[in-house]
Design a binder for these strands. Sequence first.
DNA 1: TCTACGTTTCAACAATGGTTGAAATGTTGA
DNA 2: TCAACATTTCAACCATTGTTGAAACGTAGA
Lengths: 120, 120
Amino acid sequence: MMDERQAVAAFAALGQEHRLRIVRQLVTAGPDGMAAGMLAEAVGVSGTNLSFHLKELTHAGLVGSRREGRSIIYSAAYPDLSDLIQFLMRDCCQGRHEVCAPAVAALAACCTPTGDDSHA
Amino acid sequence: MMDERQAVAAFAALGQEHRLRIVRQLVTAGPDGMAAGMLAEAVGVSGTNLSFHLKELTHAGLVGSRREGRSIIYSAAYPDLSDLIQFLMRDCCQGRHEVCAPAVAALAACCTPTGDDSHA
DNA sequence: TCTACGTTTCAACAATGGTTGAAATGTTGA
DNA sequence: TCAACATTTCAACCATTGTTGAAACGTAGA
């Protein structure tokens, strides 16, 4: 369960053009992640600069990394992104379900496979 | 549909202790909102400082305001918060539904009334 | 109109954050 | 061990941001 301090750090990390691109690139890349070098090229920043931002994102808990040969592979921390979203909307309803139903619907629409509507 | 520039502004706005508290206070307060003065007391900042942060949040599109007597009532912009969440997770699945299912489940659990499971 | 109240604007300051190039670290294959 | 590669660290600079108190603005009621 995320606390305020962590949430501030996470949002601050995402509130920067290059870092938001990095996270979105990694989210899109999926669990396998991407090497730092390719990430730098994809996002359009220097190696030095990417390293700075990756350190920030790592410290905020939004990305993870592993070494693979000479490369270091970064990947999105999906569980922490979930926690962050949940923190932002926590206590939003106050009994009024309709207030935040659109947010639920939007996220569900983004992530629920069409056709395969298994309720599990 | 939110673009990158808006998302960066929104996340940057949320990435500050006092502003995150303000937004959460307003989210908790519900659609009726709160007067600026009560908000300042609840969050623990001076009037001047609150005004500064509210301007930032307004510019980021995360809060709205209306005058009521001498007070100005601020309230959370729920649709924009939904958009922001959706932007962050957009394209996350890449065919792998299980990757972001936890985020959907977390948000749904927060906002779905227990017992009353109307699918509307 | 006058006074009190709630909120915002302004100007100044201290602190933080992003970018850059050069140098250091760690890894691989010859 | 050596040279080439991938990434990080370091130090310096410039720009942005958060905070503060005083002053200004707009509204309500006497």
